[in-house]
């Protein structure tokens, strides 16, 4: 498996506060990596750094390197629009646009130059199929996305992220606002997407991390404490702090 994304000495500051204190991590193609750790440990901040989403937060700064395709994207001349097309993101709370289901998916491709109606139709169907939502919404593509249930909305957001053909997908606690049935569907979708994408998922749900990820990284107080195969982390972690966290003794 080839490496696709690597961070080196990544430090992220909010004003004076150092939220991520130098993290080195490598992500490979066709894999799911889970980022776990207690609230405020910097895992979400780290995730948001990977597509430079922290740029949108006033007062945030970042040092260190993020390598993708041999380019350091933490450089001033990086075109974040191209970067974000390559690195899709799904948030904790479903955030569909106040538009139709179709318009939600077609939004990204339109801005990246797809004008042809047939081509857009294809992208919409393809993205919805990948997110396992097509069969549920194919007859009402032009109704409001807000008429969908929470779980459907979240899968719509996944489909929307896939619409611009990213190579990497960042998921920020994608199932934490959903019921168990919807969660199971999202996890199933993630496992299918793994065949084509590199997926990085932040989760508070340890069972979820164990179920879907190949590798797990444990964050604590802005540092990467341990990174290993998920199996190893959950059965025989080398760091006592990881052991305490995964066994539920704190966090």
């Amino acid at each position: 498996m080839t490496d696709i994304l690597r961070t080196e000495e990544l430090k992220i500051y909010y004003g004076q506060n150092e939220a991520v204190k130098g993290v080195d991590l490598t992500f490979t193609e066709n894999s799911v990596t889970a980022l776990i750790g207690p609230s405020g440990c910097g895992k979400s901040t780290f995730l948001r750094a990977l597509n430079r989403m922290n740029d949108e937060i006033p007062g945030s700064r970042m040092t260190g390197n993020i390598w993708i395709d041999g380019k350091n994207i933490n450089a001033p001349d990086t075109d974040v629009t191209v970067l974000r097309q390559n690195i899709g993101m799904v948030w904790q709370r479903p955030n569909p646009f106040y538009k139709s289901i179709y318009a939600n998916i077609a939004f990204g491709p339109k801005y990246h130059g797809v004008r042809n109606k047939a081509e857009l139709d294809n992208i919409v169907e393809d993205s919805l199929r990948k997110a396992a939502l097509w069969d549920e919404v194919k007859d009402r593509l032009h109704t409001s996305a807000l008429s969908l249930s929470g779980g459907q909305q979240q899968r719509l957001c996944i489909a929307r992220a896939l619409s611009v053909q990213p190579k990497i997908l960042l998921l920020d606690e994608p199932a934490s606002a959903l019921d168990p049935v919807s969660t199971a569907k999202i996890e199933e979708t993630i496992l299918q997407l793994k065949e084509q994408l590199c997926i990085v998922i932040v989760t508070h749900n340890m069972q979820q991390a164990a179920r879907i990820s190949g590798h797990t990284a444990y964050f604590y107080m802005g540092r990467l404490v341990e990174y290993d195969k998920t199996e190893k982390i959950f059965t025989n972690p080398s760091d006592p702090m990881t052991q305490e966290y995964i066994s539920g003794r704190f966090g």
Binding site: R84, G88, F97, Y111, C157, R160
Partner: peptide, 15 residues
């Protein structure tokens, strides 16, 4: 306006 709505758009590479 919820901020995550804007982020969704930025996240797709919109300016």
């Amino acid at each position: 306006l919820p901020r995550n709505l804007k982020e969704a758009s930025y996240g797709l590479g919109a300016t």
